[in-house]
């Protein structure tokens, strides 16, 4: 186990290193680093000073070492627009994105599992078929379009929910959260539903497949023969066994949900990291772009590593030795 963990950690570090090289090449070789790292408003003397200061006149490998050194110290440049360290800016926006993504994942369980359970128990009923067809739409509709339709229906036509923004926030441990106030929850309802639509379809299908697979099993027949109530059989014996794959997949999907929050945040003007990166790309605020890319790669590799480790801990059938 220990050697496996060490090897896995080594691999993760290698991927991070590879990503720094790719981002470095993207910024310094393909683009012109002088344009990218120095604000366009700087005059000639300032430019020369900054070029010398940042070592842009030095050989490429030295520049890479400089970039890597800065990244290791958490220094990825200052934003041109906000004149703040890029990393701090992203860190400040992260809670909004995390709260949205976690809410979306929780919502997908709240909707997906009951719907999947119903579709699995009554596969030939009309409602069961409607649910399954609906889940195909959940997979194939572009999420930004669904978001627009939600705004059009619930904000513009019916006026039930606010269309954009984060609403009132309450502070805990120095971080502002929306889910603690009623107004914040009202603002979060539509974006979270929009973001969770894909995951709802996914959980729904997993649950349905699980139910169909579990129902003919001997231990279910035995539980029924024992005279247990149908509710107890379904909610204890069936559901318990389905939850393992559902939770694993949702854990993996958390990273994807954070990435797709880019789209939802843009539609609903939700002030998270995703909105920040899109705005930064549009005004060419490159230090923020670089910082975001490095940050999201780090998040992803961490999530993948944690899920891998949890998986081997939770499921003893996964033999680490053979995996090597």
């Amino acid at each position: 186990m220990f050697t496996w963990l060490l090897r896995r950690l080594f691999q993760a570090c290698f991927v991070v290193l590879a990503m720094t090289i790719i981002v470095f090449i993207g910024v310094h070789v393909i683009g012109n680093p002088v344009d990218i790292l120095i604000s366009p408003e700087a005059d000639q003397a300032e430019r020369a000073k900054i070029i010398a200061e940042m070592g842009l006149d030095r050989p490429l490998w030295q520049q890479y070492a400089y970039f890597l050194g800065g990244a290791l110290h958490g220094d990825l440049g200052r934003s041109f627009v906000f004149n703040e360290p890029a990393l701090k800016l992203i860190g400040g926006r992260m809670p909004a994105t995390l709260e949205l993504a976690v809410t979306a994942v929780l919502m997908s369980m709240c909707f997906g599992i009951p719907l999947g359970l119903y579709a699995g128990l009554k596969p030939n009923g009309i409602l069961g078929r409607v649910i399954m067809s609906g889940s195909i739409l959940g997979f194939s509709l572009p999420s930004f379009w669904v978001g627009l339709m939600l705004i059009m229906t619930f904000a513009v036509q019916l006026g039930w929910l606010p269309s954009t923004g984060r609403g009132e926030t309450a502070e805990i441990l120095g971080v502002r959260w929306s889910f603690l106030t009623w107004d914040g929850l009202r603002h979060m309802a539509m974006p979270a539903l929009n973001l969770s639509l894909y995951n709802i379809s996914l959980v729904l299908r997993l649950t349905r497949a699980g139910v169909r697979e579990t129902l003919p099993m001997d231990y279910i027949k035995f539980a029924r023969a024992k005279g247990l109530s149908p509710a107890r059989v379904i909610f204890v014996h069936v559901l318990k066994n389905i939850m393992i794959p559902v939770v694993t997949v949702l854990g993996l999907e958390l990273g994807t949900t954070i990435a797709f929050a880019v789209v939802t945040e843009s539609v609903f003007a939700w002030p998270g990291m995703g909105k920040l990166i899109i705005d930064s790309i549009n005004v060419l605020d490159r230090p923020v772009i670089v910082a975001y890319l490095m940050m999201i790669v780090l998040i992803f590799i961490t999530i993948n590593l944690v899920v891998d480790i949890l998986y081997t801990v939770l499921d003893p059938r996964v033999r680490l030795e053979t995996k090597a």
Binding site: G255, V262, V297
Partner: peptide, 14 residues
């Protein structure tokens, strides 16, 4: 292991 939107975003940002 990276979602499609993220990869596309990286490429277009660069």
């Amino acid at each position: 292991s990276f979602p499609s939107i993220l990869v596309a975003l990286m490429i277009l940002a660069v």
